[in-house]
Design a protein around this nucleic acid. Structure first.
Lengths: 345, 345
DNA sequence: CTGTTAGCGCTTTCAA
DNA sequence: TTGAAAGCGCTAACAG
């Protein structure tokens, strides 16, 4: 009853041919006669043969494994992105190892070392809040292991990134608020070492400029990305000597915290106060109506990023591609978030 | 510049010893002199040696990979559970392959086959809504690959499960509603082929009985697990000829849908209508105040389940353990969900 | 088109 | 305590 697995040698000896021919047939090589190939395929199915990837990979010295590093898997955006990565990777025969940096640079570093030890074929990474230099990536570079940033990329030019157009999305978001008659618009931003928050801030600023709304330094409140920061930011905002009636929030979790607190203190959303936040497929359904969101397209980013990485792995030599791919986003308006009608009447 | 990796042979030849000795030393075998061992360890560090797991695993015919099958990774509970699984697996040197059944039996089946083909060492599974028989697990059994159910387990007795005490948790939840002066308590349940929803239903019933509250068949509304089911269920509930003032909701997403709709139609929570739902660490912070939740402990369930599975893999022969581990839960009350004070005054 | 041969890097008898 | 040797299952020259 010892479940010995079927090998190509079993098939070969039964058929009275060599195992190398079986190997070729099973890899659909053109250098084996159709007749033999059919015979081999048939027999392999009959015996329930399944390739031993360990042996195959050892021989090819490839692991067919991708490392993925995210700050926290339970964040909606990242779990969506991971779903996308898994999907694409799986189709291409890759396995995915998921690691959480938990926003710690140190952990990020040790994860990279461990992925290196596991000889992953490539790495997808969304950097932690703490990550301000990129020396911990040296090992990857040195070993010639391709890596792709997604969402939280970094500013080094010769890297590959998969992102949304944060600038444009932010611009549109703020434009939407202006459209809805907001006159004094605050911005809750994230850590400024992360490019995405920088760019969202720039988009905010650009939209104000375009519509001749004065930019006020104090209305830009940067914080960490926890829910309670939403409340803290609102409190800070309310002490300012402006009648703020709109908010562009660059982070979903902070937006939720802000909304909750605003409701708690009986500020009507969106009638008295309109909000646009970043968010994604799943969470947008969890968020209260009243919040218009920029779809972060986690799933799609995951798909695209995995695709790009696998492409890099396969075409190692062909092109040293340092591309940045921009995944499209769209604005999702909850019905009750439109203030236009109020204004018209 | 061709990055040839350091092997045990490199170390051996430099030191003028045999590679088998190096192997033994690196595996901390007792059958190698301390002096030689130290020498080898030192040299291996100096050269930056890293074991090639492919080769090692091939030799040992183990993959050190666990398959995980969940309905949907982006569900908060499952992303938490996965985080827990990853954490535990990683520590034990295992890699995790995550697959989504997307609530489809067919997909679940093909995933299992693919995991089989990938020769995973064990499988963790939370079954899909559609799964009503377990024939697709035959392959695992046949190949002697251990598997553990978590959360959504099945009713076959000789399996290992990691769950929360759904009955007790439900009982406590309903008791909490009764404590808060609810007289007519509805129950939104899930697919009855899933044991967890059956047990939660039983807990609901038992609590009513204990407190001499009449059980009404019509107040139990089963549905699928989408957010819109929450709204649908509320509508159904409101047509009933009872003044329902409490709800025990067995699924987090449905609970959210229900709450949103209740607010939409201006029913005050929890003043007019109290709700207790199942939920977990992360989502509980996203949910509106007013909802008391039973913590589903996704992270912990993941930890425990992975631990159990790895244990099974390692001690294959020792004990044919068909244990069910029950992970503790607790009731999380949002401040504003307490009605007791209202009642007292 | 097919067979021969060698070897990926490691572990594990067996023998010394 | 160490070495020699074999082999996990597969692939890829090379030869025929």
């Amino acid at each position: 009853m010892d479940n010995k697995e079927v090998t190509i040698h079993d098939i070969a000896s039964i058929l009275g041919i060599d195992s190398s021919t079986v190997s070729r047939a099973l890899n659909d090589s053109s250098r084996v006669a159709k007749k033999t190939k059919d015979k081999i395929l048939e027999k392999s199915i009959e015996l329930g043969y399944q390739r031993n990837h360990l042996a195959s990979n050892l021989r090819k010295s490839k692991t067919f494994t991708l490392g993925v590093i995210v700050p926290r898997i339970s964040r909606q955006f990242f779990s969506n992105a991971i779903a996308g990565i898994e999907e694409t990777a799986f189709k291409a025969g890759y396995t995915v190892v998921i690691c959480q940096s938990l926003e710690s640079f140190e952990r990020e570093e040790s994860i990279i070392n461990s992925l290196l030890a596991n000889r992953v074929d490539g790495v997808l990474i969304s950097i932690s809040m703490e990550t301000k230099n990129y020396e911990h990536l040296a090992g990857l570079k040195q070993r010639n292991i391709p890596y792709v940033f997604f969402d939280r990329h970094c500013k080094i030019p010769e890297n590959s990134n998969v992102v949304i157009d944060d600038f444009k999305a932010a611009y549109k978001a703020v434009e939407h608020l202006i459209d809805n008659n907001c006159k004094e618009i605050a911005h809750f931003s994230g850590p400024q070492n992360l490019e995405i928050y920088k760019n969202r801030f720039k988009g905010y600023k650009a939209a104000l400029e375009k519509y001749n709304i004065p930019f006020r330094e104090e209305l830009v409140i940067s914080s960490s990305l926890m829910e309670n920061n939403g409340k803290e930011n609102v409190i800070k905002m309310l002490t300012l000597p402006y009648k703020v009636d709109g908010l562009f929030c660059a982070n979903d979790v902070v937006a939720i915290g802000a909304m909750k607190y605003l409701k708690e203190i009986n500020i009507k959303i969106p009638e008295d106060f309109a909000i646009v936040g970043f968010s994604n497929e799943s969470i947008s359904s969890v968020i209260e109506p009243g919040l218009t969101t920029v779809n972060q397209s986690g799933l799609k980013i995951g798909n695209v990023a995995a695709n790009l990485l696998i492409d890099k792995i396969s075409n190692e030599s062909k092109r040293k591609n340092h591309e940045t791919i921009i995944v499209k986003t769209n604005l999702i308006e909850r019905k009750s978030s439109l203030r236009k009608s109020d204004i018209k009447s």
